Each structure stands twice: as C-alpha cells, then as structure tokens.
Deep mutational scan, measured.
Amino acid sequence: GPREVTMKKGDILTLLNSTNKDWWKVEVNDRQGFVPAAYVKKLDSGTGKELVLALYDYQ
C-alpha cells in the first residue's frame, strides 16, 4: 500500500501538494504520504519551502 505518514500534534511537515482540498501530500523524515487537510495548518516559513503544522495526531 501507500507509504503512510504519521504525525503528532505540533509536528512541522513539508507540504508537497495541496491541490486536493481534502488530502494534502506531505513529507516528514524522508517519508511521503497524504494527511487530512483539516489536520494541518499552513505556516509562513519565510523560505521557499511550504510548511504545515500538525494540529492533531494522525497515524
């Protein structure tokens, strides 16, 4: 199956793709996968990378 990404509340993840309104593709610890968009919030990183903050645990 697809590689699952797990996250804990407060984690910072790299946002790869947010074109789908329900599932965003993120990368964390060299793993890529989809997380519910409602579970993360975009951060203003000030760099080229888009980052998101995990609002809830997800696994």
Rank of each mutant, 00 (worst) to 15 (best):
K9D: 02
R31H: 12
D22G: 07
K49W: 07
D57T: 05
P2W: 15
Q32V: 15
N29M: 08
L51H: 07
L43I: 14
G1F: 13
V40T: 03
N17S: 13
V35Q: 01
D30N: 11
L15S: 02
K9I: 07
D57F: 05
M7A: 01
W23R: 02
Y58W: 14
Q32K: 11
K25I: 15
G46W: 10
L55C: 06
S45W: 12
Q59M: 11
V28F: 15
P2C: 15
V5W: 15
L43S: 03
V28W: 10
K8Q: 08
D44H: 12
E27K: 08
K42P: 10
D11E: 08
T6C: 12
E50W: 10
L13D: 00
T6M: 11
K49I: 12
Q32C: 11
E4M: 13
V40P: 01
V40C: 10
W23F: 06
R31K: 12
Y39S: 09
S45G: 12
G10F: 04
L53M: 14
V26N: 00
T47G: 14
D57R: 03
A38N: 13
K41C: 14
N17C: 12
V40M: 05
K41N: 06
V35K: 00
L43G: 02
M7I: 12
K42Q: 07
L13E: 00
G1W: 14
N20R: 07
T14W: 10
T47L: 11
R3T: 14
L13R: 00
R31P: 01
S18E: 10
V40L: 15
D44F: 11
N29L: 07
A37C: 06
R3W: 15
W24C: 04
W24I: 04
K25D: 03
D11N: 05
S45I: 11
D22N: 13
K8E: 05
S45E: 10
V5M: 15
V35G: 01
N20T: 05
V40H: 00
L51E: 09
M7E: 01
W24N: 01
N17F: 05
L55S: 02
V28C: 10
K21Q: 10
R3H: 14
D11Q: 11
M7K: 00
F34W: 15
G48R: 06
E50P: 12
W24R: 00
A37G: 03
N29D: 12
G46H: 13
W24V: 06
V26F: 02
V26W: 02
P36D: 02
F34Q: 03
L15E: 00
K25S: 07
S45N: 11
N29I: 05
K49S: 10
K49P: 14
E50S: 13
V5F: 15
R3D: 13
N17Q: 09
K21H: 10
K49Y: 08
K49L: 12
K49F: 08
D22H: 14
M7F: 15
D44R: 09
K41A: 12
D30V: 03
D11L: 03
L13C: 08
T19K: 10
L16G: 01
V5K: 03
K49A: 10
D22Q: 11
V5L: 15
V35N: 01
Y58Q: 01
K42G: 04
K9V: 08
G10N: 05
G46M: 12
Y56F: 14
K21N: 10
I12W: 04
S45R: 09
Q32A: 11
A54P: 00
R31V: 15
M7G: 01
L55G: 01
G46K: 10
A54S: 04
Q59Y: 13
D44Q: 11
Y56N: 09
T19V: 09
Y39C: 11
E50G: 09
T14I: 15
Y56P: 00
V52E: 00
E50D: 13
M7T: 01
K9C: 07
W24A: 02
Q59T: 15
G33A: 12
A54F: 03
S18L: 04
V26H: 00
A54K: 00
W24P: 00
E27L: 10
N29Y: 07
P2T: 13
Y56C: 13
E50C: 10
Y58G: 01
G33H: 08
L43K: 03
Q32S: 10
A37K: 05
V35L: 03
Y56V: 12
G46P: 14
T47S: 14
K42H: 07
L51Q: 10
Y39L: 11
L15Q: 00
F34G: 01
T19Y: 08
N17A: 08
V5Y: 09
G46N: 13
D30C: 10
P36I: 03
K8G: 04
N20M: 07
N29F: 07
P36Q: 04
A38V: 09
G33W: 14
F34S: 03
K42V: 08
V28S: 12
T6Q: 11
K8S: 07
L51A: 06
K8I: 07
G46Y: 11
R3I: 13
G10E: 02
D30Y: 07
I12M: 05
G48V: 08
I12P: 00
V40G: 01
A38Y: 08
V40Y: 01
T47K: 10
K49M: 11
W24G: 00
P36R: 04
L16M: 06
L15W: 01
W23K: 02
Q59W: 12
Y58I: 03
G10T: 00
S45Q: 10
G48M: 10
Y58V: 02
L51I: 09
T6I: 14
T14F: 10
R31I: 15
G33P: 03
V52A: 10
D22K: 12
L51Y: 13
A37P: 04
E4F: 15
T6S: 14
L16C: 05
N29W: 05
T6P: 05
P36F: 04
E4P: 15
P36G: 03
T6F: 15
Q32L: 07
K42T: 06
K21F: 06
Y56L: 09
F34V: 06
L55I: 09
A37I: 04
M7H: 01
K41T: 11
R3L: 14
G48K: 09
Y39V: 05
G46C: 11
L13T: 01
L51M: 11
A37D: 03
L16F: 03
L53V: 15
S45L: 13
G10Y: 04
G33N: 05
G48Y: 07
G1D: 12
N17R: 04
G46A: 12
E50Q: 15
G10Q: 02
L53D: 00
K21S: 11
S45K: 09
K8T: 07
K41I: 13
Q32F: 09
K9M: 07
I12R: 04
K8C: 09
L16A: 02
G46T: 14
L16P: 00
G10V: 01
A54G: 02
D57W: 03
Y56E: 12
K49N: 10
D57K: 03
P36Y: 04
Q59R: 11
G10L: 01
G46R: 07
Y56S: 08
Y58P: 00
A54V: 12
G1P: 13
L53T: 06
G48Q: 09
K25G: 05
N20W: 05
M7L: 06
N20C: 09
K8Y: 08
K42F: 07
L16H: 04
L51G: 02
G33C: 11
V35F: 01
A38G: 09
V26L: 03
M7R: 00
L13M: 09
T47D: 15
L15P: 00
N17G: 08
D44G: 14
D22P: 02
L16V: 09
A37R: 08
G48A: 10
G10C: 04
K21D: 10
T14R: 10
L43A: 03
D44T: 15
D11H: 04
N17D: 15
I12D: 00
K25P: 01
E4R: 14
Y39Q: 04
P36L: 05
G1T: 12
R31W: 15
T14H: 09
R31Y: 10
T19A: 12
D11Y: 04
W23Y: 07
A37L: 02
L15H: 01
D30H: 10
V52L: 08
K49Q: 13
G46L: 11
D30I: 03
W24Q: 01
L43R: 01
M7S: 01
L16R: 03
T19F: 09
L43F: 11
L53H: 04
Y39W: 07
T19Q: 11
R31G: 11
R31F: 10
P36S: 03
E50N: 13
D57I: 04
V28R: 09
